[in-house]
Amino acid sequence: MTFVARDPVQVRLTGTGGQGVITAGIILAEAALMDGRNVVQTQSYGPEARLGASKSEVIISSRKIAYPQVTVPDVLLCLSEDAFNKYFRDRHDDTFVLLDSNVTDEPVEDGRRVFKLPIVATALQVGHKVVVNVVALAALNALTGLVSQASLKEAVLRRVPARFRELNEAAFAAGEELATMVGEAIP
């Protein structure tokens, strides 16, 4: 894994309303807090959070965070076509980008910083599209090491009702498994 998380690191999680990117941002923020880091989570709110492209941003830092919003993301996740079209452009040379396989037909992967994975399809395989955010978070974190694996897993499980625990554990494992496909590809 060649991605070295900056400090502070700016993370932008995007998708379509219903894919749980807002919750994913909160989970990531909680995991970072468990790791003893400072964190700010913001989100696009209102109609956007329910329909069309939605966005959740997390800044993680070992120091005090003054400006609370992401300027240019260091890590970007796009789970839907809408989100891809709206947010993919906004990145720097070293931005680590994880895309769902279906967000675009364009050959955007560079084998270095931009990757595609069948995140949504994996969630459906695991059992329900509702866990797409957990699959995505687990994969993204396995590739970037934004937070510790233990904290992320605990943050996920704290958020879900007991009866969905197994489903989410399976989703988490599936996400990490997905990441190994890319891990091998990274030179």
Binding site: Q41, T42, Q43
Partner: peptide
């Protein structure tokens, strides 16, 4: 304001 109202921090 809207940002502060909806923002989460530790």
């Amino acid at each position: 304001d809207e940002i502060l109202s909806h923002m989460r921090e530790n």
